[in-house]
């Protein structure tokens, strides 16, 4: 168990806003050091809730009703705020979904990159700047000097996401939660960003929990995958076996529903209603 990084066990949560509706039902998943696990599901499946629970930024309306989130064998849910503060942004980092809103429009990139290094690693302003320049070069930004002095609006969406990836890996975290980091980008940039995350992850030996709704992305970047529906784990395992030999009818239908680039005329097949019906009965939703 020494190489186990994250172990979520029996995590359940309800939404108080929706009258105690369960949003997570007995979810378990694990992540080894240096592993990339995809967390996949439709909107509302609970993948973002899990990510937020791990980062301890759940909205006040969502209440955890059971389970553990063990990070390096310590339960994050039982930690005092002060302990959490020392772990978050240091051992656990976030790559956010939307690069438009994740950078402060009023501050220069260099200053924003230096924040984590100064606050979490106690670096001097000068050392943090030097490190930030290096990080920008690492994420393949061509003229890091110019980018350091730029404001976010002067950069493209892809550039901003690179900056955010640099910021996430800046503190050398052991776990990076990537919350649909390519959803807001166009497809060509998406591919580069995925490759970049994989490269950074391999270079730093970081475990990545990759939240996405796109099985295609899972196939490209992940080692293992956990598939959710309505807050319940439907299927999990190594990417290859889940995608090539899915056990659950819903997984099979979901894979079939994806666009086939080799057959552009085939059209899109929605997940059949009877499968969803059976699934809801299995989970116990009326």
């Amino acid at each position: 168990m020494t190489d186990m990084l994250l172990n979520v066990t029996g995590l359940s949560a309800v939404s108080d806003r929706e009258g105690g509706l369960p949003v997570l039902r007995d979810v378990s998943l694990s992540l080894k050091k240096g592993e990339v696990r995809g967390l996949v599901g439709e909107s509302g499946a609970g993948k973002s809730t899990i990510a937020k629970a791990i980062l301890s930024i759940l909205p006040r309306t969502v209440r955890v009703t059971g389970g553990w989130i063990n990070f390096k064998n310590r339960d994050l849910l039982a930690m005092k705020p002060q302990e959490l503060r020392s772990i978050m942004g240091s051992e656990i980092a976030l790559i956010p979904q939307d690069p438009q809103t994740a950078l402060n429009p009023g501050r220069r990139i260099g200053a924003q990159l230096a924040d984590g290094l100064r606050l979490k690693r106690g670096m001097s302003a000068k050392a943090a700047e030097a490190r930030a320049l290096q990080l920008l070069a690492d994420v393949q930004i061509r003229d890091p000097d110019r980018v350091m002095a730029s404001f976010p609006h002067q950069l493209s969406g892809g550039m901003r996401q690179r900056v955010l990836i640099a910021a996430a890996f800046a503190v050398d975290p052991e776990l990076v939660v990537a919350d649909e980091p390519t959803t807001a980008l166009d497809v060509t940039v998406q591919k580069e960003i995925l490759r970049l995350i994989r490269r950074m992850q391999e270079a730093h030996g970081t475990g990545v929990l990759f939240v996405t709704h796109d099985l295609g992305i899972v196939a490209q970047i992940c080692d293992s995958v956990t598939l959710l529906y309505a807050g319940k784990v439907i299927e999990e395992g190594p990417v290859r076996s889940v995608l090539e030999n899915p056990q659950h009818a819903y997984t099979r239908a979901l894979i079939a529903a994806g666009p086939r680039y080799d057959r552009p005329d085939a059209g899109l097949e929605p997940v059949p209603e009877e499968i969803l019906h059976a699934l809801r009965q299995e989970i116990g939703i009326r």
Binding site: I57, R85, S86, L94, P96, T101, D115
Partner: peptide
Amino acid sequence: VQDYVLLARLKGM
């Protein structure tokens, strides 16, 4: 409630 504040909070600000 913007993401950049969330990220800065995660960094321990």
